[in-house]
Simulated scan of single mutants.
Amino acid sequence: MEKTPTLPADDARRTRSDGAQSRERLLLAAIRLFAEQGFARTSTREIALAAGTNIASISYYFGDKAGLYRAAFTEPSPGCESNLHAFTATGVTLRETLAGFYGVMLADLKRGDLARLSMRLWFREMLEPTGVWDEEIDNGIKPAHAALMMVLGRHLGLATPDDDLQRLAFSLVGLAVQLMVTRDVIDRINPLLLENDAAIDAWMARLVDYGEAMVNAELARRSAGAAQPITKPRKKKA
Rank of each mutant, 00 (worst) to 15 (best):
S17A: 10
E128N: 08
A107S: 15
M1A: 11
D187L: 11
T4C: 06
R23Q: 13
A51N: 01
T4K: 07
E195S: 15
I58Q: 01
E136M: 13
A224E: 12
V208T: 06
L7A: 14
P143D: 05
A144W: 01
L98A: 08
K142Q: 10
P233Y: 04
H145C: 00
I137V: 15
E96V: 12
P129H: 14
Q21H: 12
L175V: 08
L94P: 05
L109Y: 09
G157L: 13
R14I: 11
S59T: 11
I189A: 14
T160D: 12
L28P: 01
G112W: 09
I189W: 02
I141G: 01
A107W: 14
D11I: 04
V173F: 06
D108N: 12
E75N: 12
L94C: 13
H85A: 13
D184I: 05
D197Q: 12
F34G: 00
R23N: 08
G174M: 07
S43Y: 05
D164S: 10
V92I: 15
D138T: 15
F62H: 02
K65L: 11
K142G: 00
I31N: 00
R188Y: 05
C80T: 04
E125M: 05
T6A: 07
T93D: 06
N54P: 01
R70S: 11
M126C: 14
I141R: 08
A146K: 14
H85S: 13
T90H: 06
R167E: 10
G211M: 04
W203K: 04
S118Y: 01
A227S: 09
A238D: 06
S17Q: 08
D108I: 12
L106I: 06
T130C: 04
P129T: 10
D64V: 03
A226C: 05
L121Q: 03
R124K: 13
L194M: 14
L114E: 10
D163E: 15
L49N: 08
K232L: 14
L109T: 01
L68M: 02
R167F: 07
F87Y: 15
T4F: 08
Q21A: 14
